[in-house]
Simulated scan of single mutants.
Amino acid sequence: MTTTLTTSMKLSQYCDQFRIIHSIFVKISFPYIFLIANIGFITNISTVLLLPKNFITKNMKNKWALIALALSDLLFNTAFLIRGIHDIFKGNYAHLCLVVSFLSHLAELLSACYTVVFTIQRYTAVRYPLEAAAHRRSSPILSLLFIFVFSSIFCFTLCHRNIYVECHEKLKLI
């Protein structure tokens, strides 16, 4: 107990320095948000436009998982950009906060699920190369759509159950 109190008393003298560092990070975060969002837009739009072309991906069976992953990243970049603009103008629009929260949760969940789908596809192609080459599978579009629908329902429910304070989400963890 005395060690904890001594340590916390020593840290309190550095509180002003931490506030200065925090204010510097807040000032550089807005240009950083826009830089990352723009790089994400350029690369993900390029991916979505180029992967469907047959001259680039002639025999690539899992291009749809990569396209879905790029679309989920575009969704996240959009939410990231809306959030940055909202924070600059210091608005407090309840519906916009819900939309940004929904889009960011959906993009995060879809990105994780689509990465798992792509990884499973690549694993089976590497682990069982002859079977994967000989076996003509159906398009993974239905499974990707299934993931999208259930992720949307989950994120919609999550966003409506959480509390928002100054447009920042407070998760209710049970």
Score class of each variant (00 low, 15 high):
T157M: 08
R137P: 05
Y128D: 07
G91P: 00
Q121H: 08
I147S: 02
L98C: 06
V149R: 02
F150R: 06
S111E: 05
F156W: 15
A107G: 13
S111W: 11
S111T: 13
S143A: 14
S152E: 04
L144T: 06
I153H: 03
T124R: 14
T157Q: 09
S104P: 03
F148N: 04
H105I: 03
R137L: 10
L96E: 06
Y93L: 13
R127E: 12
I141K: 14
Y164G: 06
I141Y: 04
L110G: 01
Y114K: 02
Y114M: 00
L142W: 14
Y123T: 08
E108K: 14
A107H: 02
V126T: 14
F148H: 08
V149S: 04
L158Y: 15
S152W: 03
I153D: 02
A134Q: 15
L130M: 14
V126A: 15
H160D: 10
R127C: 12
S139E: 06
Y93W: 15
S151G: 02
L98M: 12
V116K: 06
I120K: 11
S138V: 08
S101K: 11
H105M: 10
Y164E: 09
R137T: 15
T115E: 06
F154N: 08
Y93I: 12
L110F: 03
I163N: 09
C159Y: 02
I120T: 05
V126W: 13
P129A: 03
P129T: 04
L96A: 09
L130A: 10
I147F: 06
A107E: 01
V100A: 07
L106V: 00
L142D: 05
C97R: 01
